[in-house]
Nucleic acid binder design. Structure first.
Length: 639
DNA sequence: CCCGCACTAAACACGA
DNA sequence: CTCGTGTTTAGTGCGG
C-alpha cells in the first residue's frame, strides 16, 4: 500500500497530471488523469484496502494514505522495540534502546502528522524522485493487492465489522507489505547467494525500496524527525544501534538514500550493509510486535499465507518457521515471478536510474530533473513530475492527457523541461496543447509554422524523429482547431492562439464528480503544487487535477474548495506566467465564459481591432491574448 | 453502442 | 518540379 500511495502521490504529479496512467495505466491522458490514475493508483489500492467498507471520502483517502506510510514506519520502529524488549530479552540495554523507539513512534503516529507535514515529507521534488520506481511499484502493488485480498479472504473468518475491519485490514495489509518486501528481498538475496542474481544489494533494493520508500522518502524523513526534535542523525544512529532489522528490507533504501544527504532516518529503509540476517530478525520482530499473539498470516495453528498451510503450534513457532525456511517455500512461484520481472525491469531501466532521480538529485532549481539523456533516450520513463500520462512513444494509445488533466502544461513543462528535452519520451500533451504552449511562450504570442516545429524539436527529444508524422499532425491541428488562428504577416503567416476557443474545447466543468475528486486526490503529489496550480490558473486551463494535489491543510483548504466549484468558473487571473505574458494580456479571464460557442469566424470578426475591450464578452475585462495579437496585426484579418 | 476527441495517414491545393 | 504550407477527409483507438 505504502508504495502505492506513494507512487500515486508522485504520479499524480505531474503531473499529477496528468497523470497519469502510463506504462501500465495506459496512457490515455484521460484515463491516466482521471480514471487511469484512480484505477491504478491509490484509488485502486484504497479500494482494495477498504473496499469492503465502501467508498472513502477524499479526505479519508488522504488520511488513509498518510496512515499507511506512517504506520509502516511506525511498524518498523515498533518491531525494533518489540524485538529488543519483548520475548525473552528484556535487558536494561534494550530497554534503553527501546526508550528511544517509543518516542519516535509517538512522533510517527498518524494522528500527529498533519497533511502539511505529509507534504513536507513528500515534497514534490522528492516525490518526483521516487517516480522512477512507479512501474515497479505498480507491479508490486498488484501483487500486494492480490495477496492482500487473499489474506483478507482468509482472515475474514471472524471480522466482519466495518470500521474495525478496516483497522485490522490496514494493519494486516501493512504487515503483508512488509512481509512481501521482506520476501522479495530475501528472495533476491537468496538468488544472489546462489549466484543467480548478480545484483548488488543496492541495486536489488532499488526497486524494492521503492515500495516503502515511495511512501516515505528517506531524504524527507529528516524533516519528520527534526520536527519532533529528534535530530535526523541521532535517530538514525539509534535505529542502527538497536540492531534494526529494518536494514534488511532497507537494503533497498540504501541506494535511494545514497546521495549526499545523510541517509534516511527512516529506519526501515536505511540499509547499513544489507545484511541478510537482518531480514530474518526483522521479520521476526515484525511478526511479533504488533499484535502479540496474532499475525496476519497466522491463524488457527497454521500459516495462512496463500498456498501455505504449514502447521504451527503457536505464533512463536510460526514466526520461527516462517522466515527464510518457511516463507520462501511457500511462495516460490510468486517470488520467482516477481524477481524475474523485477530484474527484467531493472535491467530495462538501467540500474542507476532510480537512484539517479532520487530526491537527492534535485537540481538547484528545486526541480527534479529527469535522468539525463545519456541515460536512457528511449526509455519509456515517466517524467518525474508527471504521473502517468502517456509517454511511451508509440502507438496511438498515448495521446491526450494534457488536455483533460495535465492542463498545466506550462508548469509541467517547466518542471520536466529537461526530461522531455533529453528523453525520447512522448510528451503527455496533445498536439493542440503543445502548439498552444509554444505560441504562448513567445513574447508575441505568435509563431510561424516553422517556428512551431522548431519549438517542438527543441523542447522534446521525441520530436526529433518521425518528423513527417508529427509535423503533419501539427499542421493538421493548426488547421483543424478553431483555437489556432492563422494571421497573415508581412513575412508570411503566423499562428496565434485564440484562448477563448481553446478554452471552449476543453472540458468545461469538473463538477464534483467522484472520479474527479478521486483524481484530485490521486493527483496528490503533483510536483510543484503551488507552481502548477498557479500555472494552471494562468493557463486558464483547468486546474483540475493538479490543484488537488495540494491537499495540504493550509493551501488545500483554501484551494480545494475553489478547485471544485470554481473550476468551471473563470479563474482569477494569475499572471503566473508573467514571463511571457505582456501586461496587456490577461488571458485567463476569458477562460470559460465563452459567450458564444462557435463561429470562429464570428469570433474573428468580433475582434475588431479598434475596440480592444469591445469584445463581446461582457464579463471579460480584457481581450484575450490572441486577440491582442491578432488585433495587433490588424490589417490582414479584418480586411 | 454511440459519440466525441485525439491521432495518424494521406490526398489535394497553392505559392515560392 | 520540388518543397513548404494549409486544408480536408478517412480511419482508428479510447473513454465517457
Amino acid at each position: 500500500m505504502m508504495v502505492e500511495s506513494a507512487s500515486e502521490t508522485i504520479r499524480s504529479a505531474p503531473s499529477g497530471q496528468n497523470g497519469v496512467g502510463s506504462l501500465s495505466g495506459q496512457t490515455d491522458g484521460s484515463s491516466g488523469g482521471a480514471k487511469g490514475t484512480t484505477a491504478s493508483g491509490t484509488g485502486r489500492d484504497m479500494t482494495t484496502g477498504a473496499d469492503s467498507n465502501g467508498e472513502m471520502s477524499p479526505a479519508e483517502l488522504l488520511h488513509f494514505q498518510q496512515q499507511q506510510a506512517l504506520q509502516v514506519a511506525r511498524q518498523f520502529l515498533l518491531q525494533q522495540a518489540s524485538g529488543l524488549s519483548s520475548p525473552g530479552n528484556n535487558d536494561s540495554k534494550q530497554s534503553a534502546s527501546a526508550v528511544q523507539v517509543p518516542v519516535s513512534v509517538a512522533m510517527m503516529s498518524p494522528q500527529m502528522l498533519t497533511p502539511q507535514q505529509m507534504q513536507q515529507i513528500l515534497s514534490p521534488p522528492q516525490l518526483a524522485g521516487v517516480v522512477v520506481g512507479i512501474a515497479l511499484q505498480e507491479y508490486y502493488k498488484k501483487q500486494q493487492e492480490q495477496l492482500h485480498l487473499q489474506l483478507l479472504t482468509q482472515q475474514q473468518a471472524g471480522k466482519p465489522q466495518p470500521k474495525e475491519a478496516l483497522g485490522n485490514k490496514q494493519l494486516a495489509f501493512q504487515q503483508q507489505l512488509l512481509q512481501m518486501q521482506q520476501l522479495q528481498q530475501q528472495h533476491l538475496l537468496n538468488l544472489q547467494r546462489q549466484g543467480l542474481v548478480s545484483l548488488q544489494p543496492n541495486q536489488a533494493s532499488g526497486p524494492l525500496q521503492t515500495l516503502p520508500q515511495a511512501a516515505v522518502c528517506p531524504t524527507d524523513l529528516p524533516q519528520l524527525w527534526k520536527g519532533e526534535g529528534a535530530p535526523g542523525q541521532p535517530a538514525e544512529d539509534s535505529v542502527k544501534q538497536e540492531g534494526l532489522d529494518l536494514t534488511g528490507t532497507a537494503a533497498t533504501a540504501t541506494s535511494f538514500a545514497a546521495p549526499p544527504k545523510v541517509s534516511p532516518p527512516l529506519s526501515h529503509h536505511t540499509l547499513p550493509n544489507g545484511q541478510p540476517t537482518v531480514l530474518t530478525s526483522r521479520r521476526d520482530s515484525s511478526s511479533h510486535e504488533e499484535t502479540p499473539g496474532s499475525h496476519p498470516l497466522y491463524g488457527h495453528g497454521e500459516c495462512k499465507w496463500p498456498g501455505c498451510e504449514t502447521l504451527c503450534e503457536d505464533l512463536g513457532q510460526f514466526i520461527k518457521v516462517q522466515p527464510p525456511a518457511h516463507l520462501l517455500p511457500c511462495h516460490p512461484p510468486q517470488l520467482a515471478k516477481e524477481s524475474e520481472r523485477l530484474q527484467a525491469m531493472m535491467a530495462h531501466l538501467a540500474a542507476p536510474l532510480p537512484v539517479t532521480v532520487s530526491a537527492a538529485d534535485s537540481f538547484p532549481d528545486g526541480l527534479v530533473h529527469p535522468p539525463t539523456s545519456a541515460a536512457a533516450p528511449v526509455t519509456p520513463l515517466r517524467p518525474p513530475g508527471l504521473g502517468s500520462a502517456s509517454l511511451h512513444g508509440g502507438g496511438p494509445a498515448r495521446r491526450r492527457s494534457s488536455d483533460k488533466f495535465c492542463s498545466p502544461i506550462s508548469s509541467e513543462l517547466a518542471q520536466n523541461h529537461e526530461f522531455y528535452k533529453n528523453a525520447d519520451v512522448r510528451p503527455p500533451f496533445t498536439y493542440a496543447s503543445l502548439i498552444r504552449q509554444a505560441i504562448l511562450e513567445t513574447p508575441d504570442r505568435q509563431l510561424t509554422l516553422n517556428e512551431i516545429y522548431n519549438w517542438f524539436t527543441r523542447m522534446f527529444a521525441y520530436f526529433r524523429r518521425n518528423t513527417a508524422t508529427w509535423k503533419n499532425a501539427v499542421r493538421h491541428n493548426l488547421s483543424l482547431h478553431k483555437c489556432f488562428v492563422r494571421v497573415e504577416n508581412v513575412k508570411g503567416a503566423v499562428w496565434t492562439v485564440d484562448e477563448r476557443e481553446y478554452q471552449k474545447r476543453r472540458p468545461p466543468k469538473m463538477t464534483g464528480s467522484p472520479t474527479l475528486v478521486k483524481n484530485m486526490i490521486s493527483g496528490l503529489s503533483y510536483g510543484a503544487l503551488n507552481a502548477s496550480y498557479q500555472a494552471a490558473l494562468a493557463e486558464s486551463s483547468f486546474p483540475l487535477l493538479n490543484s488537488p494535489g495540494m491537499l495540504n491543510p493550509g493551501s488545500a483548504s483554501s484551494l480545494l474548495p475553489l478547485s471544485h466549484d470554481d473550476v468551471g468558473a473563470p479563474v482569477e487571473p494569475l499572471p503566473s506566467n508573467g514571463s511571457s505574458s505582456p501586461p496587456r494580456l490577461s488571458p485567463p479571464q476569458y477562460s470559460h465564459q465563452v459567450q458564444v460557442k462557435e463561429e470562429p469566424a464570428e469570433a474573428e470578426e468580433d475582434r475588431q481591432p479598434g475596440p480592444p475591450l469591445g469584445t463581446p464578452n461582457p464579463s471579460a475585462s480584457g481581450p484575450p491574448e490572441d486577440r491582442d495579437l491578432e488585433e495587433e496585426l490588424p490589417g490582414e484579418e479584418l480586411s
